[in-house]
């Protein structure tokens, strides 16, 4: 499963988006799609668990969680340098 798919599934599970899931693409503004700051925390937590990463303080900004593409960039940055590409270490429901 690609990082993008994992992000989309995490958003579906924890993002509590008002917009239809099928309408979310790479650049959809997630906040306009109904992502609240509370829900974004749950998305971050789930992604931290799934990829065994920690978003540092500098990434805990609205801009970073604004779209699927910006979230993917953050995850790629945090997993860069690892021997293998980002792996799912947690379990997806």
């Amino acid at each position: 499963m690609s990082i993008t798919d994992i992000i989309l599934r995490t958003l579906a599970e924890h993002g509590r988006l008002a917009a239809d899931r099928s309408l979310i693409d790479d650049h959809t503004d997630l906040y306009q799609a109904g992502l609240t700051s509370h829900a974004s925390v749950n998305v971050m937590l789930a992604l931290e668990g799934l990829f065994d990463i920690e978003f540092p303080d500098r990434m805990l900004r609205r801009g970073v969680f604004r779209s699927v593409s910006s979230i993917r960039q953050a995850i790629e940055e945090l997993t860069a340098g690892a021997a293998s590409p980002p792996q799912l270490t947690g379990e997806l429901k």
Binding site: S37, H38, V41, F55, D57, L60
Partner: peptide, 12 residues
Amino acid sequence: AKNASMLLVHKD
């Protein structure tokens, strides 16, 4: 309540 939620991911 807001702080409680943020502290779950914020690293101080």
